[in-house]
Each structure stands twice: as C-alpha cells, then as structure tokens.
Design a protein around this nucleic acid. Structure first.
Lengths: 337, 337
DNA sequence: TTGGCGCATGGAACCGGTTCCCTAACAGGG
DNA sequence: CCCTGTTAGGGAACCGGTTCCATGCGCCAA
C-alpha cells in the first residue's frame, strides 16, 4: 500500500504522532513542520484511512439511512436532501431499503445496523415492529425520524391529520358536499401511520361541516396507477358520484385526473381533485395540492442528526413542518353551485 | 463499550485468537469450544466491528455507488436493484449523487472515493471529466459502470443507438414519414452519452428509410414537463406537424401525450408516440415503448462488482442487455394511411 | 520407541491511525 | 538565578479485530 501515515512521517522526517497532528490541525505543531508534513503527504498522495481513524476515535463519519423505497418520488427527494447535507459536512450516507413486510428487516436490524458502523441513523417512514424500536435505541447513537412519530426519537414530519383536513376543507369551502377520499391502505398501516392520519383528518373535516354521512373512502396503492384504479371504481356509477376527491398524494391525484378524463368527466367542472405533496409534476396537471417539501425534510433531518452527533441533545417528539395550499385549476365550485 | 471480542473470549475461557476463529468459522476449533464461544457472544450481545476487521483484512464489505440523480424513476430502479443484491451478500451501499456539473465532483473524487473505504465502485451514467477516469482507476479496486462506456471498465448498458433505431423503425413500419424526436439536450452530453446515441439511432433509421430530410429534433429535459414543453413547441404549428414522435424516455413520451391531449390532438389517430424505458406508468398511458429493465441492470452490476471483489477479472467493455418492444395503443398507422 | 502429522489453542504481531504522557527548549516573572 | 508555563515533538499505548507462528497432544506408521 502506497501511503500510510508512517511513510508521510518518514518522508517529512518527523514521528507518526507529529504527522497526525500536522494533518489534523490539532495540538502543537510549528508552521514549518506542518508545511513539511503537508508537502510530504501530497507528494505521496496520502489519504487517511477512515477505518483506522474510526477505530480509535469512535466516530465513523457515516450515517445510516433506512427508508422503505428509493424509487418513489417522495423518498427520492428526501434522500437527495439528506445526501446533499451530509456530503457537505464530510459524512457518508449508507442506505438500506426496508420494504414494509420484507423478510430482510431482521437482517438489517441485526446484522447491518447493529455493527458500530454509524455515528447516527435516520429512519424515514419506518414504523418499527416488535422490538425494532428498542434495538434502534440500543445502538446508543443519535437517531432522527422522518414521518410517523417514533417513541423517544426526535422526528420531523408534517401534521398529516391537519393537512388532510386542510385539503378537505378547501373542497368544502368551494361548496362540495360529496367528497370522497382515495388514500393509502390501512393494512399497510404498520409502516405508514400517515395513511390513518390523513383519513382521520378527512373525516374530521367532514364531521365539522356536518357531512359525515358522505364519507367515502377507497384504499389503494399510493401511485398513479393506484389512483387511476381507485378513481375508476369510484366514478363508474354515474348516479352516485362524488363531486370532489381528496387524494392522499399527488400521484394518486394525477391518476385520478387521468381516469376522469378517460371517462369523460371534466376536471374541475364535473370533478374537483386535490392532492398532497407538491410533486414536481403537479403543475403539469394543474393540480391543486398541499405542498410539503420532502427535500427540505431531508436537509433538516441531516442537520438534526449532525447536531446530535456533535453532542447536542434534541428532545424527542415530533417537529411539524409548515405546509402550504397551492391552488391550481383542478379544483373549483361544484357544477350545481 | 459492552462487547469486544476480548470479552467474549474471556467469558468463554479462550483466547482472542480462538474466539475469532470460532466466530468466523476459519481454522481449527473444536465443536465444543465453538459452541461455548458462540454462546458467550450471544449472551454479551457481541457484534463485530467492521472497521477493525477491515483494517487488517483490507476488505470493507462496502461498495460505493456514484449516480447523477436519486429521485428519478430510472435511477431509483437501478439503486433498488443494486441495493437488494448487495444486501443479500452482506455488503453495504454508500451513495453519492453527482449531478452533471456539480462543483461537488472534485470533493467526491478526492475526499470520498479516494479513501480506502470501498471494496468496489459502481458508476451509474457518469461520464468522467478530465482526470476523473484516471482517478477511478487509481483506486485499485474493481469498477463497474452502468450506462455510457467507460474506458477500461466493464460496463453494462443497452445499445442505445439500436434501441432508438428500433423505436424509430417501428414508427416507419407503421407508415409514418414525418417523425420527430424529443430527446436529451446534447449540452448535457458530458454526462450522458446516451442522448447522442439515441439521436444517432433515430437519424440512422430515418436515413435507412430515405427520410433524412424529415429529421426534426427537439432537445429538452428528460422528464414529463420537459416532454410536455417540447411537444407543445413541436405541435403548435398545425400546418407543419409530425405524425409521430419518438421520445427518448417514457416520461418524455407521457409528457408528450398529455400535451397532445390538451391541444386536442388524438393519440394515436393524429399522433403516434413511442418512448424508451418500460416505466411503471407506461401502461397507464397505453404507451408503446422499448423496455429496458433498470432494476435488472442494477442487480447485474452488483453481481459483477461482487465477482470482481472475489477476484474474478471481468474484461472491460460494454455488455449489452436485451430490450423489448412493447406495443400498446399510443402508436398506430398515420391518418392518411 | 521414535518421528511425523493433524488438530486445537494461545501468544503476539499487525492493520493505520489518534492520543496520552513525557521530555526539552525557551520564554517571562519573582 | 530559579521556577513555571507554553510550545514542539517523540515514544508508546491503544482501538478491535485477524492471522502468523509456536506449542502441545494424541495417534498412526515405521
């Protein structure tokens, strides 16, 4: 191996100890000596081995991220935010995907996370099952969550119930009385408390407006095809059709719009559609939505975990991020109004 | 810290050496001793420190992945494939996003990749600039590429030129004579040789059919909004309108379809649209496309890098993966035919 | 009986850094 | 002039594993 610190030290004519101090900038080293060491390091092409350093310092400069999917827009945005921030601070990001009911869960928790490879772990939309939460805490390193609340872990999220209520109220204010909801399956609830909360927000808003009997919920996959299928199901009976649909995500909302178009139902004249996310494609479909900013969430989570690694103790609990209703032309007054 | 191998050894009443052998399964250990050691390890809750092990073995069980974006469908699929395969083999995946002209490039190459933290590196759609390629090789570890060809590195890809020709020929076979191409900007060519090759394939197919004078290329972002904008530009003049569009990606194709619908142009009656990718959403839009399988590509790349780490030397060069034309109803004969 | 071999195990070196502790030189203050 | 504090730098321990080498023992063949 070309380039251990001993070689640098030898070339510069100093001890390993001095070479280390010179390169790290800690401790007393005369300017000339430092200069010599730096020079030697660069001629050799020396790069420090993080493994060796971690071994003694106990810091790995590596953060683990556990996330259910990579490919979906929402999660991709979060990852980009996290990665950007970690990179800027000199940290690596090691990624594990942990699909809801994957048999790999145990493996990830036991084998990968348990080893002392990380300075901190960010759990994105992971609802720990069984003793998984305890195992996370046992790691003894800072933890940060994004999404659902995690016992004893500082978490950033949006207030899903309130956001859902906000979206539903927007439809109510426009005059709609028959408002359906297409949302995440409650069977997947294990990993996404989000689904239940958005449904609850929808129902609370209906109840507040005295529209509870109009409650109509169709569960589906949170994707465009999922939204499409659910919408077809919901809109196929012309005699009994909602005038507005609150979709739990923008992709679902877009799928809904496509279904409506294909069925000859005009949006927003015959059907208003609102989503949640602020997806990159929302504008293309003129979609009214409540924006959250997943990329921002990733940035904030990274900042929090870095602060935790630096010794600041964040109090557990959920920190709600602001959201914003963005009106476009997929929503309007119902035909009768 | 609770649980170094020395503690395990002490509890089992053996030496560190024996404990290590018992746990790794290498070397001679009597069954009873092994049993005792394993027992001790589990009562203590011992997990090996990969850093310490890497230090002496030289293997980190960690693969670096460099990729231009995370959030886009295509790259997300690749990542899922890579990650799944690495996880199954006990490897970690550390991720760096390297956007085409990002100033972070140098940082990634110098600071992150240069350290001896990886057993191998997978470069996804990275066209190295300047001495970046040489720096990759200098790492002295197995390298695998996905996408564009990389000098001296085994790469898996699809034959972009042929795929583009295939798609274009499909349109020609249907009887189209005015076929436009919406593709990636050649200014981004630095990172995506793909763009140029697809354009070349398109032109070659036109030339073969004696339609060269119909060549009409509009560069754009490879996304739905990108496709939408380009399509609007391409279709806005009714007197001079192509009857078919070959889009360089499915997202572009979908954006094109949306634009056409909004402009009152029927697909496929007035306009045929074909894409490339096999996107999850292709079916929803009845999109004819040439399927590649990015997730598969990720799996194969992971297998190759693991083989390389195991000492098998793969010869450099591009390994082309099969693709498949999937016909749906976004393409058809031109109106006049 | 002796030599050699296979198995089981312990001691110690080693991987490549960081850091503690110690010494030395050279101030400045009393 | 001596004591103390500050700056520079070296030696060595240490982080937590893996692996080389040496040792001991039982057993079989010569």
């Amino acid at each position: 191996m070309a380039g251990a610190i001993a070689d640098v030290a030898a070339l510069a004519g100093v001890s390993k100890a001095t070479a280390s101090r010179a390169l790290s900038g800690k401790g007393y080293v005369s300017p000339e000596t430092r200069q010599r060491v730096v020079q030697a390091a660069s001629t050799i092409g020396y790069v420090a081995s993080p493994n060796a350093a971690s071994l003694v310092t106990g810091h790995t400069k590596n953060v683990g991220v556990v996330i259910p999917y990579i490919g979906r827009w929402f999660f991709g945005q979060i990852l980009e935010g996290i990665e950007q921030q970690l990179l800027a601070r000199g940290y690596d990001m090691t990624l594990y995907t942990l699909e809801p009911f994957s048999p790999a869960r145990d493996r990830v928790f036991d084998f990968f996370l348990a080893r002392k490879r990380f300075d901190g772990v960010i759990a994105v939309n992971i609802q720990p099952a069984g003793d998984e939460l305890e195992r996370l805490h046992r790691l003894g390193i800072p933890l940060v969550g994004i999404g659902g609340p995690l016992e004893g872990i500082p978490t950033i999220a949006i207030d899903d119930e309130r956001v859902a209520a906000l979206a539903t109220e927007h439809l109510i204010r426009l005059g709609h009385q028959r408002i359906a909801h297409i949302g995440g399956s409650l069977a997947e609830q294990l990993d996404f408390s989000v689904h239940g909360e958005r449904l609850a927000g929808y129902r609370a808003a209906l109840a507040d407006a005295g529209l509870s009997e109009a409650d109509q919920f169709v569960p589906t996959q949170l994707s465009m095809p999922g939204g499409y299928d659910a919408a077809v199901q919901l809109l196929s009976d012309p005699t009994n059709r909602p005038t507005a649909i609150f979709a739990a995500s923008d992709e679902v909302a877009i799928g809904t719009i496509i279904a409506a178009r294909r069925m000859g139902i005009a949006v927003p004249t015959d059907l208003s559609v609102i989503g949640i996310d602020g997806h990159d494609y929302a504008e293309l479909f003129s979609l009214t939505t409540v924006e959250q900013h997943p990329r921002e969430q990733g940035v904030i989570a990274a900042d929090m975990i870095l602060a935790g690694i630096d010794g600041e103790t964040a109090e557990p609990g959920v920190r709600d991020l602001p959201t914003r209703l963005v009106m476009r032309s997929s929503t309007g007054r119902p035909a009768g109004a």
